[in-house]
Design a binder for these strands. Structure first.
Lengths: 325, 325
DNA sequence: TAGGGTATTGTAAACGTTTACGTAAAGTGC
DNA sequence: GCACTTTACGTAAACGTTTACAATACCCTA
């Protein structure tokens, strides 16, 4: 059915080893005449390498497995674009394995699938595995790297924005705009969330602000809407939100109860995806460079020397009011 | 390094064939005693099957390849969730191959990768391949199915909403709300776009409306913003948009020039993703059931008998004004 | 006890490709 | 012309797993 190198060898009058060398481009091991003949016949037959056979023999493949989290935020496209582009430049293919949203079983299955496939590297995108799966990864001998997440453990590769810097910059910016009653909303209790709390509190302290206010959530729009209720009795003038979706949820729920953004409540959103342009008003954001994070994580997992942290920036839109001091 | 069935056989005192039978669960071909011993040793050794070896021998794998388009709209998550869940129920794994956004080279590479991997089926998600790639798929012997797109060719499997029905229902709804000057915005010239034009025009005709107005775009937010300029000199009271992103773009650009939605301009958006809840006002939508489309496409590619079309519904939010007749 | 049927296990080959090593031919330099 | 080096090619084995077929062991019944 599917042509093999045996078929090409038979038609070319050469051995399967020669066919293999030509198709693997082992320069200097075949003549131009032989090469031309083999390539012509391969094309005529519609030959395609059997990936399984190659991987079995080489015990390695030129494929990076990306394990993708179905996070309620929508930054994945930028990350994937960056990964795909850089991997292609380095001669690597990319397969994506889907891990659902905080579904330990799906995550475990995705990790095992990647390990079974002798991939050249594994990128875990905004995913925090439990200890058993982390051990599995470490013991596999396959390089892996966290993307848009880091664990504060040395020896574990990662590429991300600096979560402490994200929130401390947001605090700096809001203080600069005259705000002193600043909350942090929608983060969770995992590493990313705790790192952002650290930066938030350090930012408040640096400005001599002694009152902090933190509300947990799950990064989703619905979570944002619910969180607005919790802020109603509080005297905060500004909220830093854990994601664009949290911000959109707070924004819309606020407007529904007559709280105007930015006049009555200012918002600074973490991520800075296209959602920030869609809302009314547009959301001022601490914008992450997801494309570069993705791209750089490929270099990281391939063993190149790169910086862990990708810089963020403040993008001013319409959700922050300057207060009189 | 990685344990093989040879290692297990040596420790168990049985042949590799017996180990293989146990690990492949060939019931009735091994004793319970032998099974228990083999499974215990496999676990102690941390054994994992080598997927490449299995695929090489069986010439087939229990994996569905999903080729994913980076469409500017964001319905992928629902589709992927549906695919992943249904595939799991049917004992199939899923790998995702990324094809960029209308990038013929990336698409071709993704298709070739899927074919090289002896997958059990290929799902093409909102992707329209050129004739050469379509021929490649047909000649491969591997079943494939279009997801959220259909080509009007018999024998080619697909699962989608009915694009003619989408626009004709949108027209029906707007006419019911008193609108007669109705435009269609943001669709492209590919199959999906032309099918939606057909439904739009049939809907107008059915209501005796003789003036149609169609503006092409690329489903993106930026495209939507630009399109609003083209509508300024026209006397339309309502626009059906090709995607939620187009709608958001038109909505925001309109508000920036003093056109109020829905008072001055009504919008009905195709897709109905979470974006419709985020905008202000919320967008009335023809909502597609992406989860069910994904789920059903798995049944389709696995050879089960399913309906091609998944029903849509109108979700009323805040973007359509009822006009006086 | 002998015979028949079923369960259990082992041997050998297959799957498609890569590559180490050996051999032959061609090319280069003295 | 000879010796050495490089190019080109072939043979054989490897990779890890599956499975057809043969052999053996076990169980049940007459």
């Amino acid at each position: 059915m599917k042509p093999t190198i045996k078929d090409i060898a038979a038609r070319s009058g050469v051995s399967i080893a020669t066919v293999s060398r030509v198709l693997s481009q082992k320069t200097g091991t075949y003549s131009e005449k032989t090469q031309a003949k083999i390539l012509r016949i391969a094309k005529e037959l519609g030959y395609r390498k059997n990936t399984a056979a190659v991987e079995l023999v080489k015990k390695r493949s030129a494929v990076i497995a990306v394990i993708l989290n179905a996070t309620p935020t929508n930054f994945s496209t930028g990350v994937i674009d960056g990964i795909q582009k850089r991997a292609s430049e380095l001669g690597q293919g990319v397969i994506i394995l889907y891990a659902g949203n905080r579904d330990d079983q799906m995550l475990h299955k995705a990790i095992v699938t990647a390990l079974e496939r002798t991939v050249s590297g594994i990128l875990l995108t905004a995913i925090e595995p439990d200890d058993a799966d982390l051990t599995l990864l470490k013991d596999s001998g396959i390089p892996f790297c966290f993307v848009s997440l880091y664990l504060n453990q040395p020896k574990i590769l990662s590429v991300s924005s600096n979560n402490e810097s994200i929130t401390s910059q947001a605090v700096d910016y809001l203080v600069e705009q005259g705000h002193t009653a600043i909350a942090l909303a929608g983060i969770d209790g995992y590493h990313t969330g705790t790192q952002r709390i650290t930066g938030y509190e350090a930012g408040l302290k640096a400005h001599g602000i002694t009152t902090s206010c933190i509300k947990y959530g799950d990064y989703s729009y619905e979570s944002g809407r619910k969180l607005l209720q919790e802020f109603l009795p509080l005297k905060v003038t500004a909220i830093i939100t854990a994601s664009d979706m949290i911000a959109a949820g707070i924004l819309n729920a606020a407007q529904e109860v007559g709280i105007r953004v930015p006049e009555d409540l200012s918002l600074v959103s973490i991520d800075g995806t296209i959602i920030c342009n869609i809302t009314t008003p547009g959301l001022t954001s601490v914008t992450q460079d997801f494309y570069r994070i993705g791209s750089r994580s490929v270099d990281q997992v391939m063993g190149h020397d790169v910086e862990t942290f990708v810089p963020v920036k403040i993008d001013k839109r319409g959700s922050v009011k300057q207060l009189e001091k």
